[in-house]
Design a protein around this nucleic acid. Structure first.
Length: 180
DNA sequence: ATTGGGATCGTCT
DNA sequence: GACGATCCCAATA
């Protein structure tokens, strides 16, 4: 299983996102396969980077291949991977995982055996991703968190739809789902 | 199976 | 001071 390198992420989010379907997100000894993802770019009114950098969104404007975590609705964390070039605020939001490793721990963290990682807030709770992890380098070979390729190819014809939970930028079909 | 309301707080205006 | 790139539960049908 090979860690995905910086070069892969240093492209535009709408290009990177569908190629991340099938890749494995690993946090410590917990792992899940990415099955749903969304892209956000700087010229996109739905993106946190749309109004320029802030302390919160700084990772989106830094080098690609870093984690961007934000807190929302007073109770949920969401995990993104930064993409594009330095200075360009882009990221992909990981929306759902198929649990692979450490499922028992995920079930315990979630407090239920079903629906443990089928939403952006849920997967963060299951994997223990929080605000303190924002900005971490996913391409650091020594890091405990990263994205890996285990030989599973991205789907050739993923479903692409409107993104979820936004009120602007709905014309961009930048949500991709691995077909079952 | 689907829908609607409430929870809760970090971040930016 | 308002508002979320959401989730869960309870109530419908």
């Amino acid at each position: 299983m090979r860690r995905v390198g910086r070069r892969f992420f240093a492209r535009d989010a709408p290009t990177v996102a569908p190629e991340l379907l099938g890749k494995v997100l690993m946090v410590g000894n917990l792992a899940g396969r990415i099955i749903e993802i969304e892209a956000y770019t700087q010229d996109d009114p739905a993106s946190h980077s749309f109004r320029g950098p802030t302390p919160r969104t700084a990772p989106m404007f830094g080098a690609a291949g870093h984690l961007y975590v934000y807190f929302t609705y007073g109770m949920h964390h969401c995990a993104n991977v930064t993409t594009g070039q330095v200075g360009d605020g882009q990221a992909v939001l990981i929306r759902a995982l198929e649990p692979l490793r450490g499922i028992d721990v995920m079930i315990e963290r979630r407090g239920r055996a079903r629906n443990i990682s089928d939403g952006p807030g849920k997967l963060c709770q299951a994997l223990g991703v929080g605000l303190s992890m924002t900005g971490l380098d996913l391409c650091d070979r020594a890091g405990q968190i990263g994205i890996f390729d285990d030989g599973v190819a991205p789907p050739s014809d993923p479903t692409s739809t409107e993104r979820i939970g936004i009120r602007v930028g709905t014309d961009r079909l930048w949500r991709w789902i691995a077909s079952p």
